[in-house]
Design a protein around this nucleic acid. Sequence first.
DNA 1: CAAACGATTTTCT
DNA 2: GAAAATCGTTTGG
Length: 201
Amino acid sequence: MILPESFYTRKDVVKIAKELLGKVLVTEFDNVRTSGMIVETEAYAGPADKASHAYGNRRTNRTEVMYKKGGTAYVYLCYGIHHLFNVVTNATDVPHAILLRAVEPLEGIETMLLRRNKVKLQPSLTAGPGAMSMALGIHTTDSGLSLQGPPMYIEDRGIKISNKDIVAATRVGVAYAADDALRPYRFYIKDNPYVSKGRGL
DNA sequence: CAAACGATTTTCT
DNA sequence: GAAAATCGTTTGG
């Protein structure tokens, strides 16, 4: 089933980030269905989080989407090259978001390989936020879309991830955020080969 | 209006 | 393991 809006509008962004593990991200662009199981996420707790674009309730054209209600897609271009896909959570005017960093490919693998210019399925196809977005065909023009149905949504297919297989860690690439960089806001599935290693290290 | 920077990936050594 | 690529957004004058 497609996750209802009530899943996203809850207030605990960290908890939602953890619960997203094992859910299935589906996109239906170009008349092709591509999907993958979410294996890595990062929470960005809005105003109180120095690592967030919306730190201190900063409100600009770019971050505007984060102030929408939960269940909205926020896509942002990083380093001029990479599209990063986030899910907005919480109520309207509360800029919380969850960055989806990696998925395990399920459907439309052929299409994903094509988009990534690869011929063989390997973890690097979707391990990492930029790579994942490219494989699923996510573009910055898709920012602001609702996740309640096609062309983009997240499904619960009954996959259960037990607590002992969930690892909490610090976020990647946010060293500039000082003390907030130390928060354990990153979650990933233990021993899953599609989890990004972060910065290719 | 101009300058600096980044929630990364890829490629070369 | 290190460095470059590359451009929209943000910040300062």
